[in-house]
Structures are given as C-alpha cells and as structure tokens.
C-alpha cells in the first residue's frame, strides 16, 4: 500500500484563529476513511487545503506525493459542503461540463444514478430543492474514476432513504486502489462502511485507528468511542 494523502506539520490560521494546527497524518490507498470531529474542528479546512482552495499557513500537504495543483486535481474528486453549481444550468449541461474537464468522468454512470434517484436531467438547478442539488453534486463527484474522493459532509442534507442509496453508491463505485475520505459528524450512519477513522478536534488529530481495532480491542462501536472521546 502506498500513501495517497500526507500532511506534515500542516497549519492553517485565519487571522489569529487556528483552524488546523500542526497536523501530521498519513492515509494509505484503498480504504474508506472517516474524518470525524465535532462542528468547527477543522475537517472542512483540511479538505479544502487538499484541494488548493486554501493556502497553508505553514507545513505541507501532499496528494500521491505531489503538492496540490493541476496534477492532483486530475485525480481528486471533491464534494464541497456547499452548493457550487451554477443555478441557471441544466443537469445535463453540468454533466457536459464535467465530461469536458475531467478525463475520468463517466457520463453514463451519472445518468444511471440520476435515473435511480428520479432526477430529470433536463431540470435546471434553480428549480431544485437543496437536498436534490446535493444529490446531483454527489452523483457528479462519484461518477468520476478518481484515485481520491474527498467528500465533505456528503449526507448532511439528504433524507435517510437517499442516504442509504448514496452510501451504497460510494461503496459500489470505489475500486480497490481508490481512497475515499468522508468528513462527517453523523457517525452512526456511515460507521458500517468505514475501514479507518481519524478523530480530529480543535484542529488537531486526536486519534487514528482502523475500525477493526476499535471493535476488537476496545470492544466499542466508532460512534460509542466518538461520544467518549468528545464528551462535552
């Protein structure tokens, strides 16, 4: 197994506020990783640093051994926590845009998923509910054959039935070498698909562990451990 994501002393400050503080982290390929922490713990900031949407204050972040840039963007499929699509576009136009720019995008996969979730490809995003927009974004992101998927709160705004479908979709679309990093605080919902967890709090990595270890050695569920670690 080789490393897909590596942070060395990664720090990000916003003014005087420290969002990510000297994080050292290595994520190996071929697993589903939960980036778990309470609200405001620095999950989104870390994912945005990996996408070059934020510039680190100090330290480095490497994806497949490279600094974030054109080459890493070709292999990273990112789902942001906000809706980033143009309101005026129709779904099929956005699929066209993704096909144009990402060599690894599979439009047929996107259309198939749209059909399963009964979303009309001719609809404009303007007319859609927030949940439907989120579904469209997730479909777009998961229709790529990326090496690294960075999903920031992918299930926050959608109903439980769609949530199940989406998790199934993630499982189905991810191949042996790909890595999925999911940031969320809704742990019980995704616990079953995780291989590895990173607990993060106040910008620092508190604990990393494989899910098997948590279950076998500590005899707890990830959700249980999370509640214990982050007890208020």
């Amino acid at each position: 197994m080789s490393t897909i994501l590596e942070c060395t002393d990664l720090t990000k400050k916003f003014g005087s506020k420290v969002a990510v503080s000297a994080v050292n982290l290595k994520i190996e390929r071929g697993q589903i990783v939960g980036l778990l922490g309470p609200n405001g713990s620095g999950k989104s900031t870390m994912i945005k640093l990996a996408n070059e949407l934020l510039t680190p204050t100090s330290g480095t972040i490497l994806i497949g051994g490279k600094k974030p840039g054109i080459e890493t963007k070709k292999i990273v499929s990112y789902l942001p926590e906000k809706t980033y699509l143009n309101d005026w576009m129709r779904v099929h136009q956005i699929i066209g845009l993704f096909s144009d720019f990402y060599a690894d995008f599979k439009p047929e996969r996107a259309y198939e998923m749209l059909k399963s979730l009964s979303i009309n490809a001719n609809d404009r995003l303007k007319t859609m509910s927030k949940g439907t927009k989120e579904k469209v974004q997730l479909i777009l992101v998961m229709s790529r054959e990326a090496e690294l998927y960075l999903l920031d709160e992918p299930i926050g705004g959608v109903d439980p039935a769609a949530r199940d479908y989406i998790l199934q979709t993630i499982l189905r679309n991810y191949n042996e070498n790909a890595t999925v990093i999911i940031s969320t605080h809704l742990i019980s919902d995704i616990e079953n698909i995780l291989d590895y967890v990173v607990f993060i709090n106040q910008g620092q990595v508190v604990m990393t562990s494989s899910v098997d270890d948590i279950r076998n050695e500590k005899g707890k569920s990830v959700d249980g451990l999370f509640r214990e670690v982050f007890k208020c």
């Binding site: 996408n51 949407l53 963007k73 070709k74 990112y78 980033y84």
Partner: peptide, 8 residues
C-alpha cells in the same frame, strides 16, 4: 469557485 478551482 469551489468548482472552478478544482477543475484541472
């Protein structure tokens, strides 16, 4: 910009 800047 989240989309534009994550395009390669």
């Amino acid at each position: 910009g989240y989309l534009m800047h994550t395009l390669p």
